[in-house]
Design a protein around this nucleic acid. Structure first.
Lengths: 203, 203, 203, 203
DNA sequence: GATGAATGAGTGTTCATTCAT
DNA sequence: AATGAATGAACACTCATTCAT
């Protein structure tokens, strides 16, 4: 399907990829202009459609491509993590932050794509979340939890708390440049939340 | 700004409002067609742009209008609520469900609008959330919380848990028709989460 | 359907009609460019699609419009014709020539459209031919035909002979300007053919 | 001009020829895609344009090539035909039917090409028709014709009658599959027409 | 106030043809 | 000879917005 594109010299491929990523992130799927993409990538109109039969396929390719990179980096490093849930969740958050710094455009694109709600993307995304969730929770040490606790619910509460916290942080730092962000402060706050939960759920 | 529109006879105003709401909900901002809106509303092309100088202004008006109605209904009923946080949160969830049933289009529109992330909407939304948050938390009875607990954090955890639960439910019922939804089951599950939190945070 | 277009001032309507007719005649359906049509008609791109929802509809409108005019003129004058078949056929040929002179573009368009073979056109055309045929043959005086002759076949032979002759003439005069055509010579030749057939088929 | 192409190995040449023929027959000149042709032929884009400088040249080559094959088969077998005109015309019709069955694609292509009306094709076609006509009429036995008959006109009437009949038949069988066609019935009808003409024109 | 004809820059996509390899 | 990446003008069609009436 995309073999033509894959055989391209890396430099040109990246130019196209970045141009498209950039345009989609800035304007969203509908508003993104293939005209702008080719201009940014410095290629002709026809060439884009030589590689991708239409705008949608380009978008889906970008999604799969970004997801692939994230998954590889994510799952690869998750194997070596702690089994103690709070430590593990903390490590996951740090890993996520690291990936955002490494591939900010891809991350933004993925976030935006998920909101887009196209059938195909929603499906791929659902699968990913399920796989991630299983991976995160496998090997978790359940022994420290209080005896009368509904552990599955407790785990969901931990996950949702980190999600809520994460959203709040993102909302706040949205308009800051990367070097204005005080990660120590953020992590300290997060540790505060994890402390509350640990004290509440562990014996 | 919209004074011309406000002076319109109620029936015509509502026709325009509903037509626009409907179109934006169904197709999103970009894909919504002003042509379709005027057709649905039974007015001329020119008239729409006589009342709203462009598509964006119409959209923002709709947002403010919807928000207004929600806020009124929400804040109005919130005054009479319990001060015990779990009871109050439960009441808020029920109220939210009630409003979704009463104004499904407006609710969908607001949800979609928030995701849109346009500067103006984001700002208005931030303000609303802050106001709501203050309102929800005012008069909360803090005495039952454990003495050594970081109460503000605990409250956030409660809010985020309900948010996470709510998102999960929405994801699941997205493809169900309204009468296929089993509300009792959903509420029972929610009560389960509230129980876990109450046992953990209360003395 | 085309009410918008019909309410247009005659001058502009004709400009659009002629521009489209001209373009379709010159280049055929596929190769005709809506860009060229609007340029020739001196209107904006959008306006053409305001009147006709797409290229195909414009084409079909043109077909129906042209056909209508031809049919009216044709059927109108056919009522007053002789019942003697050779005289009638001669009158029909003369009428056809007259119409070609009066509406050369429409005639060319109709001829081209029939060859186009699109489903819709083929259907409309088949109906027209059947109607014409019935009209031509109604009231024909069969008494002069030889007694042992298969009259329906003889009539078909007369029709096909005129068709064949007509095609041959058209082929020859295709590259001549209108005033270079010697109609007297052509008609004399045609009368020769009709004489042969009359002598052969009549007692 | 096409010497490069002629020196190609027969198998590859035929692959290209058939692919092009197929595409042109299915979609017509304008809509035929060189992309599809090279895909069907299993050759590269560049190679097609190495052999034929453009689409038009390929089309014209195909026309000449098809015509050549038809002419050879046609003229070859025409030498051995009867001199009695009605018998000969019947034999020609049968031969035509035979050729349609033997080379349906080429026949369809030629028919379509003639309708195309491009200058070059029209010219080649005119020449062919004249040559065929001369060939058909050479050696015809004029003795059975009635003494006072305009024989050249009579012959044209015979030809046009067969043409008209043939067109009518083609119109009718267009949507039938090959084995649904009742050839005996068609030929019987045709013989009816030839009988009418024979009785009328012969002493 | 109310209409809807008119605009034109914009869209995604196609495709015959070229050309470096 | 053979490849297929690359071009770019052209296509039909859309749509928010304007404006004369």
């Amino acid at each position: 399907m995309f073999s033509k594109f894959l055989n391209l010299e890396t430099e040109k491929r990246d130019r196209i990829l970045n141009a498209a990523l950039d345009e989609f992130v800035q304007k969203g799927y509908e508003n993104a202009s293939t005209n702008e993409i080719v201009k940014k990538a410095g290629i002709s109109k026809g060439l884009l459609f030589h590689y991708f039969k239409n705008k949608k396929q380009l978008y889906l390719y970008l999604y799969d491509y970004s997801l692939d990179i994230f998954e590889k980096e994510f799952f690869g490093k998750m194997a070596a993590m702690e089994n103690e849930i709070f430590t593990k969740m903390r490590q996951i958050v740090l890993l996520k932050l690291e990936l955002i710094h490494k591939h900010p455009d891809m991350f933004n694109f993925l976030m935006a794509a998920v909101r887009d709600e196209s059938q195909e993307i929603t499906l791929r995304n659902k699968e990913l979340i399920e796989r991630s969730y299983l991976k995160i929770l496998e090997n978790i040490d359940l022994s420290p939890f209080k005896g009368d606790l509904d552990i599955p619910k407790a785990i969901n509460i931990i996950v949702w708390t980190l999600q809520g916290f994460s959203n709040e942080v993102q909302e706040k730092i949205k308009f800051l440049s990367l070097d204005e962000i005080n990660y120590d402060e953020i992590l300290a706050k997060m540790d505060g939340y994890l402390d509350v939960l640990r004290k509440s759920f562990y014996t």
